[in-house]
């Protein structure tokens, strides 16, 4: 099975984000970058599929040189090959999807795995856009995956229950937390991963479909309100939940 796993480098969740002077991008100074947490499930699932069906796992990322670090992690976990599409700008989801699709067309993977979202921009677009560009099915936010022959059976968590979908290879699958329990890389594999080559690809010029106009840090958290516990207070509490917090 030819397995392509697309991974992304994102700011650490504990990092304080600030906006760059241009007012529409993140200031990367002092930011610690990590492998997108959902992508770890995608890598693990790729490795498990290879263990079951044999084949190769190619880890792919789009980004600048420092994104090679996450490819080393994928190699240490057991990926056979690592590829970076050199595009530090990553203008929008479309340009990223298009350069991945171009690369995928050149290796014809049976399955493309990725995390359900990258936790920086949270666009949730990659799986569907890739499926569209490659004219193959895509199933997003998958929490259980079975492949028999060319038949793909994928389970998704939906409000109050499960949904089971069937499709056939080739396919794009985005991974939900809980799809598997990602393995920890072993010490010698970390050492070996440092020696492995990383293939570099220059993407074609692609025009972005979306322009970022402005980026802002959210206003600080709202102040808490304390209400009492008389019947009138409870009525007021319900009103606040409804009208101010808008939770229902």
């Amino acid at each position: 099975m030819n397995i392509l796993v697309c991974i992304s480098q994102v700011p650490d969740t504990t990092t304080k984000i600030s906006v760059a002077p241009d007012g529409k991008s993140m200031d990367a100074t002092g930011v610690k970058f990590i492998l997108n947490p959902y992508d770890e499930f995608a890598i693990e699932e790729g490795l498990r599929l290879r263990e079951k069906h044999t084949g190769t796992v190619t880890a792919l990322t789009v980004g600048g040189d420092n994104a090679k670090e996450i490819l080393r992690t994928a190699l240490a976990m057991g990926a056979d090959k690592a590829v970076i599409i050199k595009d530090a700008a990553k203008a929008d989801s479309f340009t990223i999807a298009k350069s991945i699709a171009d690369y995928a067309s050149s290796i014809n993977p049976d399955i493309i795995l990725l995390g359900r979202q990258s936790i920086d921009h949270d666009s949730f677009q990659m799986a569907s856009t890739l499926g569209g560009l490659l004219s193959i099915p895509s199933i997003s936010v998958v929490s259980k995956l079975e492949i028999t022959g060319t038949v793909v059976s994928a389970e998704r968590d939906v409000e109050g229950g499960k949904e089971v979908l069937e499709a056939s290879l080739p396919i794009v699958i985005s991974a939900q937390k809980g799809l598997n329990d990602p393995r920890y890389p072993k010490l010698p594999d970390i050492m070996k991963a440092k020696q492995k080559p990383i293939e570099e690809i220059t993407p074609a010029a692609i025009t972005a479909r979306v322009d970022v106009v402005a980026m802002d840090i959210p206003a600080t958290a709202r102040a808490n309100k304390v209400v009492g516990d008389t019947d009138a207070d409870i009525a007021e509490f319900v009103r606040l939940l409804h009208e101010e917090a808008k939770v229902f």
Binding site: D12, I34, K186, I190
Partner: peptide, 11 residues
């Protein structure tokens, strides 16, 4: 020793 698991990230 070769089996040692490594967790390099916070997650």
């Amino acid at each position: 020793g070769d089996e040692t698991w490594i967790a390099g990230s916070d997650a």
